[in-house]
Structures are given as structure tokens and as C-alpha cells.
Amino acid sequence: MNIVVCLKRVPDTETRVRIDAEGTGIETDGVKYVMSPYDEFALEGALRAREAAGTGEVALVTLGDAASGETLRQGLAMGADRAVLLDGTVTPDGLATAKAIAAEIEGVDAPLVLLGVKAADDDQQQVGPMLAVVLGRPCATGVVEFAVEGAVVRCERETEGGTEVLELPLPAVLTITKGAYEPRYASLKGIMAAKKKPLEQKSAIAVEPGLVVERLELPPDRPPGRVVGEGPEAVPELVRLLREEAKVL
């Protein structure tokens, strides 16, 4: 069975974010970019499903600039079969991204489309469900494990205090979160093989974003801590402040 995995290139989660001069984005100088970790779970899930089926291909799709090619090659090195780079601008509007990706996926014979539950940079959780709507397919979000069984896909979701099991008819869209799919390391042979795998670059369809970022700010500095005293004598005052001022007791 063919599976499409949608990836996003994001700043490394260890990045110390600085706001750019316009105040609407982040400084990109010196920032290391990686595949969004949730997308790595999705890719791992896809690779295991392909291995279980023993047939089919895993295709990667991303919307971004030429630098996203590196992220796609990382995915190819992990074991995906081919990749498509939709050359275009990533906006904060999840619907614009979903429409651009849908235009590519509509023409592909792939009953299963996987994405990370959210991008590690903007945390919006929009693209997956919106893509499902644009494609007119059912969607399960926050899936921790799935299995294709004939014409359906069974999904497990973790809910408050329990597990929810869903069954969706194929074709379907799933967004994957941390669970069963600890991503594999790209093997060094895989890295070499990735160079020979097809990576197609095409222009993304133009979609006018309906959402713009007005302002981006770092959280205010935390107020400095306060020492209320030392030793056992300070405890009553500490308890009083925790109760009356901080209201945590």
C-alpha cells in the first residue's frame, strides 16, 4: 500500500529563539533545522506499515523552499522511497498549506496520508485535519499506533485516562503523535542510497493566506525569586505567602 507522509522543516527544538527585526518571525541566522519530531513519528509509522505489508511505497511531500530538500533527503535516508518538494512559502495559515499539499496528493494513489500531530515550531495542529477536509477523507488525530486491515485503518488514540480505538475507511488521513513509533536512525547506507532516490521539485499552487502574524514576542522574564527567611522559623511565613499570595495551597 502506498503511503504519503507530509513533513515540515522546523528549527531544532533546542534552538534559542530570537525575534527578528520586523517582530513577526524569528532570526534564522545560525539556526539548525530538523524534521519536525512529530513528522518523524509519522514517517516511522509509515515505514513500519510498508514493511508489514511488504509492498507499496512511502512518498514524502513538503511545502517549503529549496532548503527543505535536505529534510526530505533525511526522510529518504530513513527509508522513504521518493519525495516531492512543493516550492512555495510556508505561511502561518494551515488551510493555505493544506490546500497546497492537497493539490499534490489528489493525483497520487495513496490510501493513507500521515502527518505529525503538529509542527514543532508553530504548534497549531491545523494542517492534518484541514488536509482531510480538503481531500474529503476521514481523519483521526493524535494517533499513537495504527494498523491497516483490509479496507480500513484501526487507530489508537490516548485519551484522558484511557485509550480510544477508531476505525476509519480508507482512504484516510491520520496525524501521529508520540507513541509506538520511536523513529529509527538513518543508516549510513540509507544516507548514501538517498542520493539516488527521486526528489521531484515543483512549484506549489498559489494560495492566498487568510491568516497573518501580526506580532511575535518572547514571554516576559520571570520575576526574580524571593527569600522569605532561613531555617524552621521561616516556614510559617512561607506557608502564609504560598496560601495568600501565590494561592497554591
Binding site: 535536505e70 533527503r73 533525511q74 535516508a77 538513518a186 543508516s187 549510513l188 544516507i191 548514501m192
Partner: peptide, 9 residues
């Protein structure tokens, strides 16, 4: 890119 990818892996 491959050299960096190998190193980072």
C-alpha cells in the same frame, strides 16, 4: 550534506 548527515546521525 551527506557528510553532515552522517556525522549528525
Amino acid at each position: 550534506e551527506e557528510e553532515r548527515m552522517v556525522r549528525d546521525t
